[in-house]
């Protein structure tokens, strides 16, 4: 059973740095399987964190050596090129231990800050969310996984035939590529999805999260996807029950006592017997196929 938790700087924390560092150190000591840089609202809502997650992830991954580290990203306000580039670097520097959770939540706050006059309708937001994921993945696919050669003697650094323009054109985003960063070690960093806000999507997620009222959506997750059930101290027993019944693969701990809950659970929930280093290896997920690669499967 996986244990997952979200981390952010609490509102009104006196010393933000200290608060974040202390939280990270406790999460590491408790050996969480997932640490998601996200802000909680209510008992099961997730939004992008107060601290910008893409920049803080590499730093926090230095303290969080055990968990898979995940950035909750405002999907409607982020740019595929920047995200693809940053997460490629993060994936290299964490040995393939990073993931991303694009979110619709927090939109009003970001609309104001980004100068968006007209919020998107629900359908438009979902279409943009899918487009964002596709564009970002297309940029990762602009490199084959074996493009780098790096042979000093011959002077061959990479195989030019394995790097390409992808000319991605979607309804909201267009990106030519190639990315100025190599294909991440995981192929694509782990994609997480919050089923509480995105029910149906044209893109497949690797890990899904949902509240107890989303067991139906959890059950429809793609085969092999890791299913995390959001619980608080009050709903912990129900959550454990569902995991025992095979309806979920782990718990995402929320509420004001989430950290204490994690520490208590780790007292008797064994760490999964991980094999390998990357997130995909650990979770038994396959590397994504690169549709542009001449070999087909990367």
């Amino acid at each position: 059973m996986y244990l997952s938790i979200n981390i952010d700087i609490p509102d009104g924390a006196g010393d933000a740095y200290d608060a974040l560092a202390r939280t990270a150190d406790r999460v590491e000591a408790a050996k969480a399987d997932f640490a998601i840089l996200a802000r909680a609202h209510g008992d099961q809502g997730l939004a992008p964190p107060r601290i910008e997650p893409v920049v803080s992830l590499p730093w926090i991954a230095g303290r969080l050596r055990t968990p898979l580290v995940v950035a909750a990203i405002p999907a409607l306000h982020s740019v595929p090129f920047h995200i693809a580039r940053a997460l490629s670097a993060a994936d290299f520097l964490t040995d393939g231990r990073c993931g991303w959770l694009p979110l619709l939540a927090g939109g009003a706050r970001f609309d104001a800050a980004y100068g968006v006059a007209q919020p998107l309708s629900g359908g438009e937001a979902l279409a943009k969310y899918d487009d964002f994921i596709r564009a970002t993945r297309a940029l990762w696919d602009s490199w084959d996984e074996d493009a780098l050669i790096i042979d000093k003697a011959s002077g061959a650094y990479l195989d030019s035939a394995k790097v390409r323009r992808v000319d991605y054109r979607g309804p909201y985003f267009a990106a030519m590529g190639p990315l100025n960063a190599a294909r991440p070690p995981q192929g694509h960093p782990l994609l997480l999805r919050d089923l509480d806000e995105v029910g149906e999507s044209a893109t497949a997620a690797d890990v899904v999260l949902g509240g107890l009222d989303r067991l139906d959506r959890l059950a429809r997750a793609p085969k092999g996807a890791v299913r995390l059930l959001k619980v608080t101290a009050a709903s912990l027993d129900d959550g454990l029950h569902h995991v025992r019944d095979g309806l979920a693969d782990g718990l995402h701990l929320m509420g004001p006592d989430a950290l204490e809950l994690l520490e208590a659970l780790r007292g008797w929930v064994d760490c999964p017997p991980y094999v390998g280093t990357t997130a995909r290896q650990r979770l038994g997920l396959r590397k994504p196929v690169n549709p542009y690669s001449r070999k087909g499967a990367a």
Partner: peptide, 17 residues
């Protein structure tokens, strides 16, 4: 894409973080 030039560095924010 050139085959003999080293690609530029990784994303600077990531490295500095």
């Amino acid at each position: 894409t050139p085959g003999r030039l080293a690609i530029p560095t990784l994303d600077p924010f990531t490295l500095l973080s």
